[in-house]
Amino acid sequence: MGKRQIIYRQDRIGGNQDLLNREVNLVTNEARVWHGTITTVGSSEVELKDARSGKHRFAINQIDQIYCEIKTDY
């Protein structure tokens, strides 16, 4: 079994419902990395819940990319 990384750049994030409830790494424009689960995806912002149950909101223009790993059969 392997893993594959999916990268969502800024232009693919807003309103993308595929990101909901997915465990991701969110990279800001300042190169800060946040890890957690996406709870809300709107046209202008994303909400991420971290492991300590803290919720963080990011404007789409603050995000460089969001990436996640999925397991594959090969």
Rank of each mutant, 00 (worst) to 15 (best):
A51L: 10
I7F: 01
V24T: 09
E45C: 10
V41K: 05
T28P: 02
A59P: 04
R4I: 11
Q65R: 15
V27E: 11
L19R: 08
G42W: 00
I66W: 04
V46E: 02
Y74V: 15
T37F: 07
R4V: 09
V33H: 04
R52S: 11
D64V: 01
R4T: 12
Q65N: 13
G15W: 05
N61Q: 11
Q5A: 10
D50F: 04
I13E: 03
E23K: 15
V46I: 15
Q5M: 13
R12Q: 08
N25R: 13
G14M: 00
R52Q: 13
K3W: 13
R12M: 06
T72Y: 05
L48C: 06
L26T: 00
Y8K: 07
N29H: 02
Q17D: 04
N61F: 08
K3L: 14
D11K: 08
V46Q: 03
T28C: 00
E23S: 15
S53A: 09
L20N: 03
D64F: 05
I38C: 06
N61R: 10
N16K: 01
T40I: 11
Y67T: 08
G42A: 08
I63P: 01
G14S: 06
V27W: 05
A59G: 10
K3Y: 14
C68W: 13
M1Y: 07
S44E: 13
E23H: 14
N25Q: 12
H56V: 08
K71Q: 13
R22L: 11
I60V: 11
I63N: 00
T28Q: 01
T72H: 05
T37Q: 12
H56Q: 12
G15I: 04
N16E: 03
N29R: 08
G54Q: 15
